[in-house]
Design a protein around this nucleic acid. Structure first.
Lengths: 178, 178
DNA sequence: TGCGAATGGAACCGATCGGTACCGTTTGAT
DNA sequence: ATCAAACGGTACCGATCGGTTCCATTCGCA
């Protein structure tokens, strides 16, 4: 059995936090929907904040692995990140970027959640810089920062419009940089 | 006296909601910091949701009036919107876009708050389209949509980096569209 | 000055928040 | 079959949530 409750708690929390927001989802909900007992939760996590941090850390890894997998499958060029985003936008459960959402919700920049979200964006920027470097682009770091600005703009726009169009608009803007 | 309590409630709520998030701020806080009594609040508003909607409606008007004022002062061209944003990013109390934040926080697209936020972005897009039309740009509507994507990307990036740089990056990307 | 409208303060409500302690049961390796 | 670790369920706790009601006071206008 090891720690099956921990997995279920993480899975349920990630789904609910992303769908409705961290603050909107109480422990009660997470316990009920995961089927875990209250004591089990506190055996695996120090508290809600710790659960939030664990969910975000896991999602950071999974999201970047997913991005790398899709970018590779879509040709491996830097512009493929926008095609990958378009796939994400098309999903019925798309609710923006969990890390942008976290920075909006947990206003305090010193909170653990905020810092993890910040780290995530830096890692994604580094990944995009690598794609640009492989592509022989000039100033990979500076261009990566612009790519991420376009990615975040596309994500926010897609959240609002509930369409994949924003990905194409951002891709077109990005292609002018190459 | 008329309705001084209403004004104070709106002012206090706007400040606290923007700084810490709607969900993070309870009525208790708003009443204490505005100096209004509980009964006064319910005489002016149906409930918290109604207060949130009133705050957002007022902010929509004020924000677009501010944008128009700054854009005019900064030359009146479409690219001036990014210079205006840079001013906003420099403010110590900058905490992103209240309407993006609202759409992140109030996940339900059918909620009044969500709809007001959606309306706000459409109005801003219309305003930018007008600037582009005055500038003789081709496809003002399509270009305005790209401008707003860049504006939102810059806002989210500025929230993360706590710098005005993102405005310059977005302006540079936008200028390629003209 | 007087009068009615608008006000601030407080007591209270049920519900839910995050968190703690204890219970009996299930589970998987030995 | 045994046994300890991990488990789900329940009863609590104080604090706070949004919301309702009542009352004494303050205020602006006639």
């Amino acid at each position: 059995m090891a720690t099956r409750a921990r997995q279920r708690l993480l899975d349920t929390a990630e789904e609910l936090f992303y769908a409705e927001g961290v603050r909107a989802v109480g422990l009660e909900r997470i316990l009920a929907e995961s089927g875990a007992g209250r004591a089990s939760f506190y055996r695996h996590f120090e508290g809600k904040n710790d659960l939030v941090a664990a969910v975000l850390r896991r999602r950071d890894e999974a999201w970047r692995a997913w991005l790398d997998e899709r970018v590779t499958a879509l040709g491996g060029g830097p512009l493929a990140v926008f095609d990958a985003l378009a796939e994400r936008f098309a999903r019925a459960d798309f609710r923006g970027c969990a890390f942008i959402n976290t920075m909006v919700e947990s206003a305090d920049p010193e909170s653990a959640a905020h810092k993890i979200a910040d780290e995530h964006k830096k890692r994604v920027t580094g990944y995009v810089a690598g794609l640009l470097r492989n592509d022989g682009a000039a100033d990979p770091e500076g261009t990566a920062a612009r790519f991420v600005l376009l990615m975040d703009g596309a994500i926010v726009t897609a959240l609002r419009e509930r369409t994949t169009e924003a990905a194409a608009r951002a891709k077109e803007l990005a292609s002018a940089l190459l």
